[in-house]
Design a protein around this nucleic acid. Sequence first.
DNA 1: GTCCCGCGCAAAGAAACCGTCAAGATCGCG
DNA 2: CGCGATCTTGACGGTTTCTTTGCGCGGGAC
Lengths: 226, 226
Amino acid sequence: MTSVLVIDDETALLRALRINLSARDYTVHTATDGISGLAVMARDHPDVVIVDLGLPDMDGTDVIAGIRGWSTAPIIVLSARGEEAQKVHALDAGADDYVTKPFGMNELLARLRAATRRIGPTTDEPIVDVGDFVIDLASKRVALRGGEPVRVTPTEWQLLEVLARHRGRLVTSRQLLQQVWGPAYETETHYLRVYMAQLRRKLEPDPARPRHLLTEPGMGYRLHDE
Amino acid sequence: MTSVLVIDDETALLRALRINLSARDYTVHTATDGISGLAVMARDHPDVVIVDLGLPDMDGTDVIAGIRGWSTAPIIVLSARGEEAQKVHALDAGADDYVTKPFGMNELLARLRAATRRIGPTTDEPIVDVGDFVIDLASKRVALRGGEPVRVTPTEWQLLEVLARHRGRLVTSRQLLQQVWGPAYETETHYLRVYMAQLRRKLEPDPARPRHLLTEPGMGYRLHDE
DNA sequence: GTCCCGCGCAAAGAAACCGTCAAGATCGCG
DNA sequence: CGCGATCTTGACGGTTTCTTTGCGCGGGAC
């Protein structure tokens, strides 16, 4: 999970950001002045920093420089003043982005996504290990426990991918058919049986008694990880 | 020296940027539409891209997506329209920054510095060694294991490069066609077969039974290393 | 106990896909 | 303008994959 440090002395804005960021599964740290902002930065090592230039105790660029002294975490600057010289100053001090108030929350969130995207694939866990076989979602590959790769057809892979993305949870037949074959095939439950059998034959140690590609009678299927 | 690609159909702006960037020791490439922009991008591999959203031939976000398919170079978007939805759209497509016209040249230059500063300490491995041959992405060269260089045509190279940048991961036919031939060729899968055969003839020890340029039937191709 | 529906299994024809060869078409260069 | 290299396009056979069909099993309803 990505953590964000917000340094701003406007408590209203601080609260708005806390609500919006928390709702999107960011961990939020806050500070209302430069000194404590730097302290929180040093203590919690957030992944991204959002800092207001108009802090009561320090000049904003000094805060940026203080962070840049030892951290390369992306810094997004907020400012009520949009003068070009100030933007240049802040960016050259080490800021990654500069947003002028008033700004739209969606824009800030998009810029935040752009900043976090750069710091690498901290995003998802693209490998699902269920015990007897391993699904690599990024590479689109499946391998048995021993490491031996397994060839799966496009349809088999799509089916497996949907199940893997819902690992452990039940996926209804309708959901699977809709995702793999399209909305028009919602009732063709027979396809599921055929392809599920093929996947089991390729992946399960004992296809007749599946341990991971489980049937939930009358409901759907579930990828059980061990 | 840092190289910048500017994609914009306003020749006045293009000239202004060329002058300003050249004066600051950037190498400047230019293009006036999306298609040629992507072509220059693929050919010259600039370090940073500045792209106008209002291009005559393509939607700006498609240009961004086309670049993001295989490159992580920073992208700065220019736009006459400053609507929030458009900003969000462009940033989520892969842009790093969004500047609304009219903008100050100093601000743009500062944002450019911020963008290039980030790619400074990149740990990119520009050489891909798959065992039987070696791909040098920086100097655009391929050589067999023995060191003997292999001549590849421009199209062959582009194809190989996309695969190399996704080394080990599956790349769908659509992705390859879009990157190499352009978005209009997404369905011409025949090209892939012809060129993949040529690459295999040149690079694989046994072209009939490829060990690295692998086909994933119905899905795409994969460059298998080691 | 019997019926019936959902499920697993196997297999075969149809359709889509892939590799290969080779003949135009096009481009760049001298 | 001519030439070679490169890119496009077409045809064909072999293979993989998808769809469809049929059959048997087993559990729950009655």
